[in-house]
């Protein structure tokens, strides 16, 4: 494992820790999109179907369990926790997530490495992950006064994507068995580009020491 991959995994982990911290200690999910969180839970469930059959490393298995467990519990917090669910901004989180799920599933049926149940769902999870952030970005644009934890959450998530691309580039040149298919490159890059606009405003507000506010 190279440094980019490890740093990417750690920022991904950090983003989830930040989110759980917000919900568990502050008992708030203000500014967080339930749609995006449900999509991520679906991403992990469909991707890690191999968790009990294909062992890669203890690190991988532990991380998979972590991502599955946390993504499902975040959805639970937002839907059912007595206090947390009250801060959910339902009126602004209106993006229809099945508009993302259906095309991703159709694409996975058409473009995949192997037409098997697990392979199609694994490919589906890659496509869906690429676009799962969209409802969150839409909600951020509609939110006045984005709080620090929400801003940091999206920042860490974007950093994770950027670092994974560096990891792929690194592996492409150093690992002869490693050849990523064009479609996975594409979905990864699409996902990272989605954050570009957010990053611009995040860094600007940080440099000016201002509150993060996205233009409408």
């Amino acid at each position: 494992m190279n440094i980019f991959r490890l740093a990417g995994d750690m920022t991904h982990l950090m983003s989830i820790v930040v989110l759980l911290l917000k919900m568990h200690t502050i008992k708030s999910c203000a500014g967080i999109s339930l749609k995006t969180q449900e999509l991520y839970a679906l991403v992990f469930i469909t991707r890690y179907l191999d968790i009990f059959t294909d062992f890669v490393s203890l690190y991988n298995t532990v991380m998979k369990i972590f991502f599955l467990g946390t993504s499902i519990s975040i959805v639970w917090y937002m839907r059912y926790h007595k206090v947390v669910k009250q801060s959910y901004d339902k009126d602004h989180d209106t993006f229809r997530h099945y508009f993302l799920i259906l095309p991703c599933f159709l694409l996975a049926l058409i473009i995949n490495d192997e037409f098997t149940f697990r392979e199609v769902l694994w490919t589906f999870s890659l496509y869906l992950e690429a676009v799962a952030i969209i409802p969150q970005l839409v909600l951020l644009q509609r939110t006045k006064n984005i709080d620090n934890l929400t801003g940091n959450y999206v920042f860490f998530l974007g950093a994770y994507r950027g670092l994974y691309i560096l990891n792929w580039i690194y592996r492409y040149f150093t690992d002869s068995h490693y050849r990523r298919k064009g479609i996975t490159w594409t979905s990864g890059i699409v996902q990272t580009l989605l954050y570009a606009d957010f990053f611009y405003y995040y860094i600007r507000s940080w440099r000016r020491n201002e509150r993060l506010n996205l233009p409408a």
Binding site: M63, K64, F67, Y164, K181, T184
Partner: peptide, 10 residues
């Protein structure tokens, strides 16, 4: 079992 390259990532 052998795991495809991209599948060793998260």
């Amino acid at each position: 079992t052998k795991v495809a390259a991209a599948k060793d990532e998260l």
